[in-house]
Structure formats: structure tokens, C-alpha cells
């Protein structure tokens, strides 16, 4: 079993809902990302998702696109990801999940990326543009290194696909709450609760909901039925170029509020 699944089982046994904040590596700088990761854990994150900046992030809305562009303009290279995880790993105990577009991983070499990621202490992967049908080599390598591969399920996924995805999935199921790209929404569609129920019943694995979760209220609403929630754009937009203590206080308060909200759900 990988550390992502272990953590999810432990949380489920405790009856605790899973909170997964997302931040973009290198936005606005390497030092900020490094400083924020331990803070996220301290304020109640159960897993942390680290985004790798990519020039063409198809699944992302404006907030995460801008952060990726900022990181790339700041000189982010893939080697910095490994360096970042290596440097923060000793200071945090929660599982670290890396979100990476497939081209970056493929260019590095699938086997090489996975073994080096596992080596520095990455616990899982999300690859938004890699469907399970094309993930054969990756799944083999990930399994050999006990790295969880967390696939996405969308509101448009058929029952047949949901079943197929669940069969390949080795971490949490990343349920996309809306048709669309990442970014905050003012409200969820009325179909979301039904969708969560349907997918949970079909996959028999922990389902965490991401895309469009903007704050404590929505996080509470989602975790009434889902195992947990991923908050991306709402965290990323709070990570500005202001002095680090200002950013850290703002992000810390936000995570604390979300934690409290989902603990009451």
C-alpha cells in the first residue's frame, strides 16, 4: 500500500474529512512555496498537492495559469521540483501529491521521473491529461515505487468509464465538480450531490472533490457526502507577491477556516 491510501484509510477510520490544498511550485518564488508547505500542514492539511508549472495547462483556469506563468518567468525548471520536495520533506509528515502535465513527465522519462520523485519523498501523482488507457507504463512504474496515481472522474464520465478508471486508480478519486477548468465558482450545480453519491457508490474508494471550491461554505457542502476536498485556485490566488509574513498569515487563516468548516460537516 502507498502512503496516500494509508493516510486516507487512517482519516476515514477517525471520521475525519480530507483537506487537500494545492499550490503552484515556484509561484511567486521557490522560497514562498517552501515556506508555505509546512504551514499548510500546521493549519490542518491532510495531504498537499504541489502543481508543476507548465506552459500549456489545458485543464486550468486563469488563476492557476497565471501562477504557472509566474513560476516559469521566475526561472522554474523541473529539477527545482525535486529540490523543493527534498528540502520540505523532512519538515512535513503529510503525503505530498504532485500535479504534472504529461509532456513534462514524458520528456523526463516515465521510469526516471517516478523513481526520482519517489526518491525525494513524493507520495502520489495527478496527471490531468493522461487517461488510464494511456497510463500503462506509468502505472507499472508507480506501483513498483509505491507511488499513488490519482485519476480524475468528471461529471461527463459514463458508468463504464467510472468503473474502468476505478480499476486503475491507486490513490484517491479526484472528482471534478463541474464541466470546465479549475477556478472558483460562486455555486455548485444542483447535480453535484447526486454525482458524488453515484461515483462513491460505483468506485468503493475515497472520493475527493476538486475544481470550483472557493471557500469554507462550499468545502462543508461538498464534504457532507464526499471523503474530502481539494482547494486550488482559492489558495493560489491568496499567494501574492506581498511580503511572506502577510501571505502566510492570509493563507494560514484561510486553511484554518476551511478546516473548521469541514470538521463541522
Amino acid at each position: 500500500m502507498n502512503r496516500v491510501r494509508e493516510k486516507l484509510a487512517e482519516l476515514s477510520a477517525k471520521g475525519r474529512k480530507v483537506l487537500i490544498p494545492f499550490l503552484m511550485a515556484g509561484a511567486p518564488s521557490f522560497a514562498y512555496t517552501k515556506g508555505l508547505i509546512p504551514l499548510l500542514e500546521e493549519k490542518g492539511a491532510d495531504l498537499i498537492e504541489i502543481g508543476v508549472p507548465f506552459s500549456d495547462p489545458l485543464a486550468d483556469g486563469p488563476v492557476i495559469q497565471t501562477a504557472a506563468q509566474q513560476a516559469l518567468e521566475g526561472g522554474f525548471r523541473l529539477a527545482h521540483l525535486f529540490q523543493l520536495v527534498e528540502e520540505v520533506r523532512a519538515g512535513v509528515s503529510v503525503p505530498l501529491v504532485v500535479l504534472i502535465y504529461y509532456n513534462l513527465l514524458f520528456q523526463y522519462g516515465v521510469e526516471r521521473f517516478i523513481s526520482e520523485a519517489a526518491g525525494v519523498g513524493v507520495d502520489g501523482l495527478v496527471i490531468p491529461d493522461l487517461p488510464p488507457e494511456a497510463a500503462g507504463e506509468l502505472l507499472g512504474a508507480a506501483s513498483a515505487h509505491a507511488l499513488a496515481v490519482n485519476f480524475l472522474i468528471a461529471p461527463t464520465s459514463s458508468s463504464r468509464r467510472i468503473k474502468m478508471i476505478a480499476e486503475h486508480n491507486t490513490g484517491f478519486i479526484y472528482l471534478v465538480s463541474v464541466r470546465g477548468v479549475t477556478g472558483e465558482r460562486t455555486a455548485f450545480t444542483s447535480e453535484l450531490p447526486g454525482l458524488i453519491e453515484k461515483v462513491q457508490a460505483q468506485v468503493g474508494q475515497p472520493v475527493v472533490v476538486g475544481f470550483g471550491v472557493s471557500g469554507p461554505e462550499q468545502a462543508r457542502e461538498v464534504t457532507k457526502s464526499a471523503a474530502g476536498v481539494i482547494i486550488g485556485s482559492a489558495v493560489v490566488k491568496r499567494i501574492t507577491r506581498e511580503p511572506f509574513p502577510v501571505v502566510a498569515a492570509r493563507v494560514g487563516d484561510f486553511i484554518t477556516e476551511v478546516r473548521q468548516a469541514i470538521d463541522q460537516s
Binding site: A59, P128, P131, A134, F151, T156, S157, R161, R179
Partner: peptide, 21 residues
């Protein structure tokens, strides 16, 4: 079936589009 000409092609898209394709 996966849309490949030799090794090239395929469907590397977010899950939301897989049914539409």
C-alpha cells in the same frame, strides 16, 4: 482504436472530454 498512427496521436485530454470525443 486509441487514435494512433504508429506511436503518434492518441487522446491526451482532461477526463471531461473523453466521452465527447
Amino acid at each position: 482504436e486509441w487514435g494512433r498512427f504508429g506511436p503518434f496521436g492518441g487522446k491526451f485530454v482532461p477526463e471531461t472530454l473523453m466521452e465527447a470525443l
